[in-house]
Lab assay of single mutants.
Amino acid sequence: EETGVRVELAEEDDGEKIAIKLWLRIEDIKKLKGKYKDNEAIEFSFDLERDVPEDVAQEMVESGYVCEGDHKTMAKAIKDRVSLIKRK
C-alpha cells in the first residue's frame, strides 16, 4: 500500500546496535495531510528494545516535524520498517 512515506536505514545495521538511525522520507505529499517538501527526510534514532513506533511518531508531531493528521501513517511506516529489522 502506497502511503507517501518510506522509512529506511540511515546507517548500516550490523545486528549489534540497540539504537538505530532511520530516515522518515516523504515521497508523495499528495497522500499526506500536512505540508511537506517532496523527498523531505527526517532523521531519527530508534531504540529497538524500548521505543514504540506510535510514541516516536507522536514525538515528531509534538516537535512540529509531522502534522497530527499524518501521525498514524508515520507510525505504521516506522512499525513496518522496525519489524523487518527485528526479523533479521
Rank of each mutant, 00 (worst) to 15 (best):
G4R: 03
V5Q: 12
V5T: 06
V5S: 01
R6L: 07
R6S: 08
R6M: 06
R6W: 05
V7F: 10
V7R: 00
V7T: 05
E8P: 05
L9K: 00
A10E: 07
A10D: 08
E11W: 00
E11L: 01
E11D: 11
E11I: 01
E12N: 11
E12H: 13
E12Y: 08
D13S: 07
D13W: 15
D13R: 06
D13F: 10
D14I: 11
D14C: 09
G15E: 09
G15Q: 10
E16M: 08
E16K: 10
K17W: 02
K17R: 10
K17S: 14
I18A: 15
I18R: 15
I18Y: 08
I18E: 14
A19E: 14
I20C: 11
K21S: 03
K21G: 02
L22Q: 12
L22E: 08
W23V: 15
L24D: 08
L24I: 08
L24W: 03
R25A: 04
R25T: 05
I26F: 13
I26Y: 11
I26Q: 13
E27F: 12
D28T: 02
D28I: 03
I29S: 15
I29C: 15
I29D: 15
I29P: 15
K30Y: 05
K31R: 10
G34V: 02
G34Y: 06
G34M: 01
K35G: 06
Y36L: 04
Y36C: 06
Y36T: 05
K37A: 11
K37Y: 06
K37V: 08
D38R: 13
D38L: 13
N39A: 09
N39C: 09
N39F: 05
N39T: 09
E40Y: 14
E40H: 14
A41L: 13
A41S: 12
A41Q: 14
I42S: 01
I42P: 03
E43K: 11
F44Q: 09
S45C: 12
S45Q: 13
S45N: 14
S45K: 15
S45H: 12
F46S: 02
L48V: 10
L48H: 02
E49P: 01
E49K: 08
D51N: 05
D51F: 01
V52D: 14
V52T: 15
V52Q: 10
P53T: 02
D55Y: 09
D55Q: 13
D55L: 13
D55I: 12
V56E: 05
V56Q: 00
V56Y: 05
Q58E: 05
E59I: 10
E59L: 11
E59R: 14
M60C: 01
M60F: 06
V61K: 02
V61L: 02
E62Y: 07
E62N: 14
S63E: 09
S63F: 08
S63P: 01
G64W: 01
G64A: 02
Y65R: 14
Y65T: 12
V66S: 00
V66W: 01
V66Q: 03
V66L: 13
C67A: 14
E68F: 03
G69S: 14
G69K: 15
G69V: 14
G69R: 12
D70H: 06
D70P: 01
H71V: 15
K72T: 12
K72W: 10
T73V: 14
T73N: 06
T73I: 13
T73F: 08
M74A: 09
A75G: 00
K76C: 06
K76W: 02
K76P: 01
A77N: 03
A77C: 07
A77M: 13
A77Q: 04
I78R: 00
I78H: 00
I78C: 01
I78F: 01
K79N: 11
D80P: 03
R81S: 08
R81Y: 12
R81Q: 11
V82F: 01
V82S: 02
S83D: 15
S83T: 12
L84I: 13
I85Y: 11
I85T: 03
K86Q: 12
K86F: 00
K86H: 08
K86D: 06
K86E: 07
R87G: 05
